[in-house]
Write a protein that binds this DNA or RNA. Structure first.
Length: 427
RNA sequence: GCCGGGAUGGCAGAGUGGAUAACGCGCAGGCCUUGAGAGUCUGUGGACCUUUAGGUCCGCAUGGGUUCGAAUCCCAUUCCCGGCGCCA
């Protein structure tokens, strides 16, 4: 959420930044918010005056009672004020709730380096690495490869759980674990603390960690409980310190989240329907950082570099794109995606998403920092997140890029020590 | 799941229906000191109004209720501690 004080003091700056996203709704919400905020402040001042009146009246009653005098008429008067207060309280509460609603929906301010554009076609390539493999035979896609090698079973998963689920078997299951272990070790080496978070989160925590629009389209809710399955370990990691004040000398805090991710994928019907590229459940190692505001842009580059190192070591051709204003999402001020080459689709496809959320997420979660215990707070921390590896998509990429003409798949060198030293997945 | 105890400022901890949330620690500033420390004084949550300076309200886990008036009484919820039960 944005700072309401910034909106009050510099609405033009906020409006200009929001308009870059090309979504008129944001501007409308901003206008409504400014009106509501003004109304709320006027109503609140009225209410405070009424409450003061009551305080004076009840003090008088107390004084009279102490002297054992009759206070009946005074009590009658106080009762009247009470009625007015109740009415005023309702108004204040209602405008405050609406105000908060808009404030929570208005997206983050964008960094100047974010390219302007309506959709992903306007994302800007930052750099490219590796060579696109050439095949002198008819290549197979990951579904054919995985099915033939008996390491992926999508049909039976359909029977058991429905579309967009899968079984990983044998070398497939081991490959998933190998990717997890490899990526985790790579970032542990760089000083990230591994964390297995809760896979379910309460609504109050989740509202701080993500955009409200995700509740419908992305998150699974547990029936009869106030709990949601996490869509990424970013969310429980972000919420871990909610309502806390961190110590400045402990920043930056760097974490490696380990979790399965659950996503409804509502509204993606017809998109990537086959295979395990887009599924309701997948495993992911996530990088997450809490830091001081002045170091977040440097750390954003560190996160993308870490993710690139992992992909380079696996040996996968990729490119990094600077995600444009129309495609960037609510929380991020800037976002890089890494897209790896998928031979069967003949396209670069997203495999890593790396965002600097500045103070937007931390203000929602109320995570501040200060120099030391007892000292006044210095403001909100910045939060950043980035995929280290999403195993499902990486398995797709490995199968397709490293396939051989006999239908076998070469195991990337760096993963072999996690897979009993096998060099190939054979029939 | 059942029974009992609890939740108060950055921390510790009083306050059981009638003004100011006591004392302490920490933190910030002043005085003192060559300096540090000790000592001492003042300040130390949030919002709103007005702004040299103020003023008002809110804040005792969260949400309701009772009352002229609630940290204090009642109800619900959440979390923590102890005991019993169940359990990988």
């Amino acid at each position: 959420m944005l700072d309401i004080k910034l909106i009050r003091e510099n609405p033009v700056l906020v409006r200009n930044n929001l308009s870059k996203r090309g979504n008129l709704e944001n501007i409308e919400m901003l206008d409504k918010l400014i009106v509501l905020d003004k109304k709320w402040r006027i109503d609140l001042t009225k209410l405070n005056k009424l409450r003061h009146k009551r305080k004076v009246a009840t003090n008088e009653i107390a004084a009279l009672k102490k002297r054992k005098k009759d206070a009946k008429s005074h009590i009658e008067n106080a009762r009247k004020i009470d009625g007015q207060i109740k009415k005023s309280e309702k108004e204040v509460l209602s405008s405050k709730e609406k105000r908060t609603e808009y404030l929570m929906k208005i997206p983050n301010l964008l960094h100047d380096s974010v390219p302007v554009g309506v959709d992903e076609s306007k994302n800007v390539q930052v750099r490219k690495w590796g060579t696109i493999p050439e095949f002198d035979y008819a290549i197979k896609n990951h579904i054919e490869l995985g099915t033939k090698l008996k390491i992926i079973d999508i049909e039976r998963a359909g029977k058991v759980a429905g579309a967009r689920f899968f079984y990983l078997k044998g070398a497939g299951a081991i490959l998933d674990l190998a990717l997890t272990n490899f990526a985790l070790n790579e970032i542990i080496k760089k000083g990230y603390l591994p964390i297995e978070p809760p896979y379910l989160m309460r609504k109050e925590a989740y509202e701080g960690a993500t955009a409200l629009s995700d509740f419908e389209d992305v998150l699974y809710k547990i029936e009869q409980e106030n709990l949601y399955l996490i869509a990424t370990s970013e969310h429980p990691l972000a919420a871990m310190f909610m309502k806390e004040v961190l110590r400045e000398d402990q920043l930056p805090l760097k974490f490696a989240g380990i979790s399965t991710c659950f996503r409804k994928e509502a509204g993606t019907h017809g998109k990537d329907t086959r295979g395990i590229f887009r599924t309701h459940q997948f495993n992911k190692i996530e990088q997450f950082i809490f830091c001081k505001p002045e170091e977040s842009w440097k750390l954003h580059e560190e996160l993308i570099a870490n993710a690139e190192t992992i992909i380079k070591k696996i040996g996968m051709p990729y490119r990094v794109v600077n995600v444009c204003t129309g495609d960037i999402g609510t929380l991020a001020a800037k976002k890089y995606d890494i897209e790896v080459w998928m031979p069967a689709q003949k396209a670069y496809r997203e495999i890593v998403s790396c965002s600097n959320c500045t103070d937007y997420q931390s203000r929602r979660l109320d995570i501040r920092f200060r120099e030391k215990e007892g000292a006044p707070t210095k403001g909100f921390v910045h939060t950043l997140n980035s995929t280290a590896v999403a195993t499902g998509r990486m398995i797709v990429a490995i199968l397709e890029n490293f396939q051989q003409d006999d239908g076998s798949v070469v195991v990337p060198k760096v993963l072999r020590k996690y897979m009993g030293s096998i060099k190939k997945i054979n029939l």
